[in-house]
Design a protein around this nucleic acid. Structure first.
Lengths: 341, 341
DNA sequence: TTGAAAGCGCTAACAG
DNA sequence: CTGTTAGCGCTTTCAA
């Protein structure tokens, strides 16, 4: 029991090889599940691995394979609020789930200001990851260009404002919003208003555009007082909704451009002593229980989270495999009618 | 302009050396800011680096230095809700901020179920990071043991239930809660209730214990109907508060054991037609604007976020430097009285 | 101050 | 099926 403070040196491939009585190459083959290994050799190696509690050194492996089996999910968002947004949490969950039974690991990189973005960019360019999924809603983000320039496989979540040069996955925001508008019209609503998202993000722009166009197609007016600008946050949604009720008390339906905003909107509507809209439509992921029961009744333009994150990882993996093509995926949304209270 | 599709091979140290007319060793010295380099050599190297847009290969470097200059912040939490909790977002921000002007990069690892925890553990043990900060509120988490066993430098955020074996940083939950209770007593409150945190987490246990003890010391009773158990979430806080008002309508003050719960609690209190407590105290980080203005007035047991995350990273770095000691830090809290409406 | 040389631990031809 | 042989790109003595 000579317990010197000697740091237990990590076992290497060679030590395993010696213990198993084979060559390093054979050990390597076993580690990498090569079929070209005899059962006996495999057993011997596995026993040695277990006994030594051997763990391969990824740095050494990556140095030669040029792969890290890791991808980065970069959250490039200045607004701290948004970082704790359930929206981001869902993407993270979707992506990790999509990669659950692969040998790829996802690491999250928070890049909230210029310095952090630079750090993240450096991290990626130094070869720590095989590819990047970037969530950035702002057009002035330099990360896409930097990464593309370093020829790091890259896929964006959400169509960039200056689309065309990057691969991305997005939901059909325009179509979904139009669908919601048509739904409200079909319910007999005529004085429909909206809580929009920020108009400097595609998600906000497209949802407003689809909504507006559908109303116009239905021959319904959309005066300015029936529009209130939100910022995709719950608090912003609440504020915008309050403003909306103030400006246009006669609304008979409202389209809320995002899920977190809807939480705030529903609260304000519920609290409101004033006459409230009979119908509300919301954009959100299909797994988001925006409101299990709500009054007024709620309809969701459901974005397929699983499908989107699956496409995201598929695209990225294809880029990693060597594809140089810019690919884009617009995922369909569908309407979900929630139970009315 | 012979633009073959040939992948632009990343420049290596040698190429820089050749272009600069020096040896690889000299380039390495320049890269690593060694003082033992002549100005002329340094200039030549830097020029070559710039021209080639050379970026060191971290795998190669790590293979020899045994360091990655990366630490992992592991979010080991089963509950998805909690992942988008502002609480976690704050820690992430604090830790990245504490490391902002270091050359350490933080990667986040989401470990929400057994499989992901295993993946995270593997990632860490394979040598991708120099150390780990673990946020895990559950005692059945195996990650601490696994990582410690692999002798990976590790610091926990929050005292573990089975404390003693791991280094950790925590706020003075007991003292803070007692302080809050005394404050309420000093304000003349006599029928004080509480919305507690979960009683299977130290944060919940300690806050309740500190509160209860302080009331007892003041000779005030704490009947069961003045206690409602929350789960640290906003929704849970709202539910617990509603229950509390039901059970003990005569409360004249309430102690809410966490910041997110307080948001829900305040909402319920505001909406409540019933008589509501005159005074509310809450536990939260000192940067959290729980409620800028509120009625009833609000007092916060402020936990020093910056100090805590700084201690966290300091401790971890010391572990990385080779310290084998288990160190713990309990950070003091202070009362912040918010403006009353 | 600089360069030559020896690896870090692993994978990947290439023989056998 | 298995072993031998080269490196991957970088840091780091050790001499010069």
């Amino acid at each position: 029991m000579t317990s010197t403070g000697a740091r237990p040196t990590t076992p290497t491939l060679d030590e395993v090889a010696v213990l198993a009585g084979v060559s390093r190459a054979t050990v390597s083959r076993v580690i990498n599940d090569s079929p070209r290994v005899s059962p006996s050799a495999r057993d011997a190696v596995q026993a040695a691995v277990a006994q030594l509690r051997y763990v391969p050194n990824r740095m050494a492996r990556s140095l030669v394979t040029r792969r890290t089996d890791t991808i980065a999910l970069v959250l490039s968002e200045t607004n701290t609020q948004i970082f704790s947004d359930p929206f981001f949490a869902r993407i993270v969950r979707g992506v990790t789930a999509a990669l659950a039974d692969t040998d790829l690991t996802v690491v999250l990189l928070a890049a909230r200001d210029g310095r952090e973005q630079e750090k993240a960019g450096r991290y990626v360019r130094q070869g720590h990851v095989d590819g990047v999924i970037l969530m950035s809603m702002h057009h002035d983000d330099v990360l896409p260009a930097v990464l593309a320039d370093a020829s790091v496989p890259l896929v964006l979540f959400g169509r960039p404002l200056d689309g065309g040069t990057f691969s991305y996955v997005d939901a059909d925001n325009t179509g979904g919003a139009a669908m919601a508008a048509r739904h409200l019209v079909e319910q007999g609503r005529r004085r429909i208003g909206t809580v929009t998202g920020p108009q400097d993000m595609n998600a906000g722009i497209d949802r407003f555009a689809g909504f507006r166009t559908a109303l116009a197609d239905a021959g319904l007016p959309l005066p300015a007082e029936r529009c209130a600008k939100g910022d995709f946050t719950e608090a912003g949604g609440a504020r915008a909704t309050a403003r909306l009720l103030e400006q246009a008390p006669d609304l008979d339906a409202v389209f809320v451009a995002s899920d977190p905003m809807a939480v705030g909107a529903l609260r304000v509507l519920a609290e409101s002593g004033r006459r409230v809209p009979d119908d509300v439509a919301v954009v959100g992921f299909d797994d988001a229980p925006v409101a299990a029961e709500s009054d007024p009744p709620l309809t969701t333009v459901a974005q397929p989270l699983t499908e989107m994150t699956q496409e995201l990882t598929d695209l990225l993996r294809r880029q990693i495999e060597g594809s140089r093509e810019v690919e884009t995926r617009i995922c369909d949304t569908h309407l979900v009618r929630r139970a009315s209270a």
